[in-house]
């Protein structure tokens, strides 16, 4: 059943509609919400939403509960390859919980928040932007880690990044829902404007496993990966110090040593290498730049350091 949870008339002969699909079977009211498309340039969740919905459709008897799929919180952004909401300055994920009496976007965010609130678990799927590629990971703030980590470990992802909380992040959908008691996991996979079928498949198995653990899936599931947890480890950031074109030598998921030569920033005009990019620490590359043009400061890689005491990452 498809429902419209928010509808706002646009200027010329069109409505902005935020839609969800509810799939329900059995007696249980346990509810999982699968949410994606907050940023219009992040498309990995599109394929995941399709995979989950179509698989449940074919195996509906195995479902005992409610799965709500929200594939496009920002339909105009998806339609126009725009990260934010077109014609609105603020990132949609900085406007939650919204308000019923505010701007159009605040009204939409308020309706979304109200609709998802009360789910047993919400999975909020993001891709990286067009500049960076990320291994399948879940990001959790320190204050919510104790509650959310057990659920994150069910999701068949490679990495759980527990990060410090920041005031500016209090306006995200995840923070809003977690503060209202709806357990919400933020997933980051792949790269912007693309679909990485391998990662979507991996996360699909994670969603089924989560449903199984919540008691709402009676079908078989595959054993899930044990993710690396960032707690007790540091993350090293490799930024470009110069402007030019970045050409990586290392690959995604590689384990590197501090000082390893992981790429060059080149200047095609002078035919010179303007920066030899080195690993800032030992560890595993879990973020790598995809888009080659860089300024001073552009993020090139993130490296997860080993546990203190020398264990490999």
């Amino acid at each position: 059943m498809t429902e419209t949870i928010a509808s706002i008339a646009l200027a010329v002969n069109e409505k902005l509609k935020i839609q969800k699909r509810r799939i329900q079977n059995g007696n249980s009211t346990t509810r999982l919400s699968l949410v994606t498309g907050t940023h219009g340039d992040e498309l990995e969740g599109q394929y995941l939403a399709f995979m989950v919905g179509s698989f449940i459709d074919k195996n509906i008897d195995l479902l005992d509960g409610i799965v709500d799929i929200y594939p496009a919180l920002n339909p105009m952004g998806i339609d126009s390859i725009t990260r934010g909401i077109p014609m609105f300055d603020l990132d949609m994920n900085r406007v939650f919980p919204g308000t019923k009496n505010g701007t159009m976007v605040e009204v939409v965010c308020s309706a979304i928040t109200d609709d998802i609130s009360g789910s047993d678990v919400c999975v909020d799927v993001h891709s990286s932007n067009i500049f960076l590629k990320e291994i399948p990971q879940i990001r959790i703030s320190v204050p919510t880690a104790e509650v959310l980590l057990p659920y994150a470990e069910m999701m068949n992802i490679d990495f759980v990044w527990i990060h410090e909380s920041a005031t500016v992040l209090e306006s995200t959908l995840a923070h809003t829902l977690n503060s209202r008691g709806t357990k919400t996991l933020v997933v980051e996979i792949g790269v912007g404007m693309r679909i990485t079928k391998e990662y979507c498949g991996q996360l699909f198995q994670g969603v089924l496993n989560l449903m199984k653990q919540l008691g709402m899936w009676k079908g078989k599931t595959v054993p899930v990966r044990k993710p690396i947890i960032s707690a007790g480890r540091e993350v090293g950031f490799v930024n470009s110090d110069v402007a030019g074109i970045f050409v990586p030598f290392s690959d995604f998921g590689d384990t590197v040593k501090k000082g390893d030569h992981i790429g060059n920033v080149i200047d095609p005009l002078s035919s010179k290498v303007v920066e030899e990019v080195q690993a800032v620490c030992d560890g595993m590359i879990f973020t790598l730049r995809e888009y080659p043009v860089v300024y001073g400061g552009s993020l090139l890689a993130r490296i997860l350091q080993p546990m203190q005491g020398g264990e490999d990452a």
Binding site: N129, G297, L299
Partner: peptide, 19 residues
Amino acid sequence: MDNTDINRMFPGYDQGETT
């Protein structure tokens, strides 16, 4: 390059992203 707003980046970070 990345459609970020400099006035949403303060106090800034000298080892961070461009803006």
